[in-house]
Nucleic acid binder design. Structure first.
Lengths: 264, 264
DNA sequence: CGATGTATTGACCAGCTTCAAGTAACGTGG
DNA sequence: CCACGTTACTTGAAGCTGGTCAATACATCG
């Protein structure tokens, strides 16, 4: 292992391109979305009061740094990002991919350092919260606190799925499982009737998520592409012509269970 | 992949060997333990009221079944267990190892099916809680609810560490990292001045945790043993003569940060 | 237009899995 | 007490999966 390790340059730009005005949570475009569970007026009021501002971060920048303490808290409103960890020599493992509605920063208690980083894949709109939001949510709206626990446990579930893949699936099984899962998670946020979905991960990202080298990832890609299980209509678009066949390929339960999630 | 897959027989014994009387939480031997954060009297009273009974489960039995809905909630009082996921053909990935003080069942909301199983490695004493404990903790003691979120996030951190290992470390790095982490986590519960700690994982467990075959695990073990980085004084005992050297081997930060954990 | 970064593929080889066989420890019944 | 079954541990040999190295193609961007 380890002749040459890829480096992952990140524009060090931790400050958003544009802090935006406050924004009304009741009017949040995600609020009415069928992927999320509805929320009561009192709870919505609390979320509103904890909200500091919205901001847009450009693609390829860090939202949270590995090792940083007292980082910010966000909800992702639109765009893609990912969580990752690195070794001292630069090897990187992507833990999971973050999509609209995902909460960022759950892992940090006051004063504790982050054990992972978060980086954007596309331009991203986030909703930023007060630093003590985590605690105030629990104290003032226990139901939302319960939701936070669920979100943390759910994220654990996503990472567990990836660990099962990386530890026990072959390269092409892994690839099939990941593409399928991302496709299903992202589709609700995509305009229907398009040829495929937006898919901003590079080959390097895929390799780092799957525990493969970029070269071998290509072999797996070629295999699936030749059997027409996936298409790449344009650089940032992914199309899965036969999801059920991919699921069989991946040894994956199908259809995937997708619960309505809480949105904080 | 996949000529012959190991099977993992589990005695199907979901019922404990011995349900025990109620037990007084204030007198719980873990309560005063330095690994855990202290807790106020009101919070302790709530925990006591949610407690149903204590029980001992023998080694090698299931505490939670993969796919089971509405499973029980436990805190592990003594002994070792592990969380795992399996593929349809039997390949198994161990997600993390559970030690005294760990909470079991966080992932299940009412009515949702477990996405992983939990199995004991030793005889295990657990404290069993009412089914609605998760919600009542949040509602009646927000501080403890906050702790539950932390526990979920912390478990996510452990799984993430394993994912980094399995995805990006070599076989012997993985082994070193896992043994070291388990050694550090388990040591506070061991009598000092022993030659090594109790270590109930078999080679098969280690292989399943590291994403390796049992045969290759042996090569990694032999390598470390020959350099005297680990000793196996007796079948269930593990000794790490030079933890710092192992940490270098594993590309691991040393010493490991060990926060005081909440105990529910 | 060169400079940079990503995508892609071939050739080679190492790390890891599989297959196979042998050893050691333990409990059971004759 | 010993043959026997069972289970975990251990090692060698052969071969496949996946990594490394290297070269080309193709974009985008100043």
């Amino acid at each position: 292992m380890l002749g040459h390790v890829e480096t992952h340059p990140v524009s060090n730009d931790a400050s958003p391109r544009s802090p935006l005005p406050h924004g009304d949570c009741a009017a949040c475009p995600l609020r009415g979305h069928p992927a999320f569970a509805p929320v009561g007026p009192d709870e919505l009021a609390l979320i509103q009061s904890l909200k500091r501002h919205e901001a847009v971060h450009p693609a390829g920048t860090a939202l949270l740094h590995e090792g940083e303490a007292d980082g910010p808290l966000y909800t992702l409103l639109s765009g893609w990002a990912f969580r990752y960890k690195t070794l001292a020599d630069g090897r990187r493992q992507i833990l999971d991919v973050l999509l609209p509605g995902d909460f960022i920063g759950l892992q940090q208690r006051m004063g504790e350092a982050n054990t992972h980083g978060v980086e954007t894949l596309t331009d991203v709109r986030v909703c930023r919260f007060a630093r003590d939001a985590l605690w105030r949510v629990h104290r003032e709206q226990p139901m939302l606190g319960y939701d936070l626990t669920w979100l943390a446990a759910h994220q654990d579930g996503l990472v567990s799925d990836n660990l099962l893949s990386v530890g026990r699936r072959t390269a092409s099984e892994r690839l099939a499982a990941l593409l399928l899962a991302l496709h299903e998670r992202a589709r609700p946020f995509e305009p229907p009737d398009e040829d495929g979905i937006l898919f901003p991960l590079t080959r390097q990202h895929l390799a780092d998520a799957l525990g493969l080298s970029r070269v071998h990832l290509h072999r797996a890609l070629r295999g699936l592409r030749q059997r027409d299980l996936l298409r790449w209509p344009s650089p940032q678009r992914l199309q899965l012509p036969d999801p059920a066949a991919l699921a069989r390929e991946a040894n994956l339960r199908w259809p995937l269970p997708l619960a309505r999630r809480p949105l904080i």
